[in-house]
Amino acid sequence: MQELRKYSVNDFWNKLMSAVAMAIVVSVTPSAIVGPLFQALANHGPFWATLNMVTNMAMYAVPVLCGALAAGQFGFSMIEKTSVALATLIGSGAVAYSAKDGTYTLIGMGDLINIILITAIAISVIFIIRPYVGSWSIIWDPIIGACAIGGFGVWTYPYVHMVTTTVGAFLNQVTKLQPLPMCTILGLSFAVIIATPLSTVGLAYAFGISGIAGGAASVGITACFFTVAYAVSKVNGKGLVVAMAFGSVKMMLANFLKHPQMLIPIAISGGIAGFIDSFVQMKNGAAYAGFGFPVGPINAFTYLSGSPLHNFLIVAGMYFILPIIVALLSYHLCKDVFHIVNEDDWYVNLNA
């Protein structure tokens, strides 16, 4: 218990959520980047069909990776890491048991909110029982992780999943009915959230933000990337500019904390991008809505109908041309007109 108390509440959850975000990114990246290619080639032979299958299979590793990575954040031993991973897999809802024929079926990645809940409980319990189990941890940790904590997750899953799906369905439905205000709000919100320690990937997936809502979130995130990339180009090297355009904006956390007004041009960019997207209505899946450029446009492309050239132009317009325009507009509006931000605010000291 004393070891657990070393971590503040914020530190505990920051470590946990960063692990969850990384687990999702690692799991969905194969299907996001090369998945559409293998899916298109799947009908051209068993070789491509197998590649398509294994690429999509990576997405189902989310519960196990969440547990293992989160436990690793706290310096757990191998037996403790795997015990936490057992608990998250069993309690995730990703595996369904059929009493009729005695089979287990992998039905998805599970409910992320329940995964986070069970992971937090498992880590806390491991800390609490560690002084008492000693060398018996190789026996007691897996039993407690699988049977007690995992079993508790099986019980909580239907209720937690009902809440998360209801929230997600509400957001998606409201966005369909009122795309203009909702796309604007989602674009603005996700543009700002990606610039904070919070995970847009985890948030989008947890609540099932998809379709038009998922597209608006992804476009807003991309607007944030390009706004930060343009701003840092004034005072940093080209390598950092490219890194920001490809999503490394969390490198700026120290800057944002010191100068919170820097989030204003980001919010403006995301809001404008979301507003314009309310007319174009790009779509994205829940697993990809929390991504910006380049993962977001790859998945958005698969939702479009029409000729490949037409679809490419739409995606390029929403994920490249539009973000550049709103980046220039919001940055110079805040810097030269309202004098909210300064060039030097965006300097990143890579040697610090």
Rank of each mutant, 00 (worst) to 15 (best):
Q2V: 13
S8I: 05
N10H: 14
D11C: 03
F12E: 04
W13Y: 15
L16M: 13
M17T: 13
M17D: 05
V20K: 00
A23I: 05
A23G: 12
A23K: 05
V25Y: 11
S27I: 05
I33E: 03
P36E: 01
F38W: 09
F38Q: 10
Q39L: 11
N43D: 14
F47N: 00
F47G: 00
W48N: 04
L51M: 14
M53T: 13
T55E: 00
N56W: 12
G72V: 11
S77Y: 08
I79N: 08
E80A: 14
T82D: 04
A87M: 02
S92V: 10
G93W: 04
A94W: 09
A94N: 08
A96I: 14
A99H: 07
D101H: 07
T105M: 12
L106E: 11
G108A: 07
M109W: 01
L112V: 15
N114L: 11
N114E: 06
I115Q: 03
L117H: 04
I118E: 00
I118G: 00
A120C: 08
S124A: 15
V125C: 10
I126A: 06
I128W: 11
I129P: 04
I129Y: 08
V133A: 01
V133T: 00
S137R: 14
I138F: 12
D141V: 09
P142C: 03
I143Y: 06
I144A: 11
I144E: 08
A146D: 05
A148W: 03
I149G: 02
G150W: 06
G153F: 06
T156P: 01
A169C: 08
L171H: 01
N172P: 07
K176R: 15
K176F: 12
K176M: 15
L177M: 13
L177G: 10
P179D: 06
P181N: 00
G187N: 06
L188P: 04
F190S: 07
I193D: 01
I194S: 04
T196Q: 00
S199N: 09
T200M: 04
T200N: 02
G202V: 10
G202T: 12
A204V: 10
Y205V: 02
G211Y: 03
I212C: 05
A216P: 03
C224V: 04
T227A: 10
V228C: 08
A229H: 08
G239P: 03
A243V: 02
V249Q: 00
K250V: 11
F256V: 14
L257Y: 01
K258E: 15
L263W: 09
L263G: 06
I264C: 10
G271T: 01
G271A: 13
G271H: 04
G274T: 07
F275P: 06
I276E: 03
D277Q: 07
S278H: 01
Q281R: 14
M282W: 10
M282A: 06
A289M: 12
F301R: 02
T302R: 07
S305H: 11
L313E: 05
V315C: 11
Y319K: 09
F320T: 14
L322H: 04
V326M: 05
A327R: 03
Y331F: 14
H332M: 04
C334P: 06
K335G: 07
V337Y: 11
F338E: 11
N342V: 09
D345K: 02
N351W: 08
A352M: 10
